[in-house]
Design a protein around this nucleic acid. Structure first.
Length: 278
DNA sequence: ATGGTTGGTTACCAA
């Protein structure tokens, strides 16, 4: 089972790039962030025509917006409001057998009876990393705390759960081009990293990409638009993540960060990140 | 310390 996360930065503008991803990589499940459109304008038919007939959307005008596109049917879908706002930053789906038998995949029992997927678009947090003068930063920290409590309240570390999305935090030294120069830059500050670490502790989340990529190796999923040539300076950050619970670790068979998508004509500033679960 | 670019909406906001 291939699962992708991608901040698409306007799903209407870049639906053709999603179709390219569908045709070339054939993921089973694609989770998008920053779709930036109301549900009535979501290009549902374009994706249905590619075989992604199970679509769960939470969109709004202009900002945010998340969705899950799937070849596999859902048994439950939820839209979660976070930090008292209906701002379309968290959707989830369940894949499970109502009879209690195993979820089948290609007609074959998977050995799993239940798998939940949570797609998150964590607030970017503004420019100033101080909640007393920047309420966006406070919103970001509160959002992460709420996710920590949500996971702790709804799951145990033995459940099969995936959470992924644009977390807007690059937590590790080699998730950024220069950890030293980004200490006070929102996305890499110690306070954000500590909050994200607490969220990870909730049900012992495991970083699926760092499962494959050594700690000392640079790994990025985002490059700013504010550079003439993103390849020259290569000042990237790993803002997009896929986490799995411990029972799924032994099923992880591969990962990919599709960096070539940053070089397309009119690209998103984020690239797709994919894992494969046996 | 500053400004650099993009998307959505449509006169700036968010990233």
């Amino acid at each position: 089972m291939k699962i992708v996360t991608w901040n698409i930065n306007s799903v209407r503008l870049r639906a053709p790039m999603v179709v390219k991803l569908m045709r070339e990589e054939a993921p089973d499940i694609i989770c998008l962030q920053e779709t930036k459109t109301m549900d009535e304008f979501f290009p549902r038919d374009v994706f249905e025509a590619e075989g992604y007939t199970h679509i769960h959307i939470a969109g709004m005008k202009s900002y945010n917006g998340v969705c899950i596109l799937s070849k596999i049917p859902f048994t439950q879908t939820d839209i979660h409001s976070r930090v008292g706002k209906e701002d379309c930053r968290h959707v989830s789906v369940s894949l499970r057998s109502p009879s209690g038998s195993q979820v089948t995949y290609g007609g074959i029992p998977s050995g799993i009876q239940k798998l939940d997927i949570h797609n998150l678009y964590i607030p970017a947090g503004g420019d100033e990393p101080d909640r007393d003068i920047n309420e966006k930063f406070g919103h970001k920290l509160d959002f992460i705390n709420e996710m920590r409590d949500f996971f702790a309240a709804n799951y145990t570390a033995n459940d099969n759960v995936v959470t992924l999305g644009d977390f807007n935090i690059a937590p590790r030294e080699h998730d950024v081009w220069s950890s030293k120069q980004l200490q006070k830059v929102v996305s890499h500050t110690p306070i954000e990293i500590e909050h994200l670490s607490n969220m990870a502790d909730s049900i012992d989340w495991q970083d699926a990409v760092r499962h494959f990529v050594p700690d000392e190796e640079k790994c990025y999923s985002w490059w700013s638009y504010r550079n003439r040539d993103y390849t020259k300076s290569n000042r990237g950050r790993r803002l997009d993540h896929i986490w799995v619970t411990k029972p799924l670790i032994s099923r992880l068979t591969s990962y990919r960060v599709l960096t070539e998508y940053r070089a397309l004509e009119k690209p998103s500033d984020h690239v797709p990140v994919m894992i494969e679960l046996a």
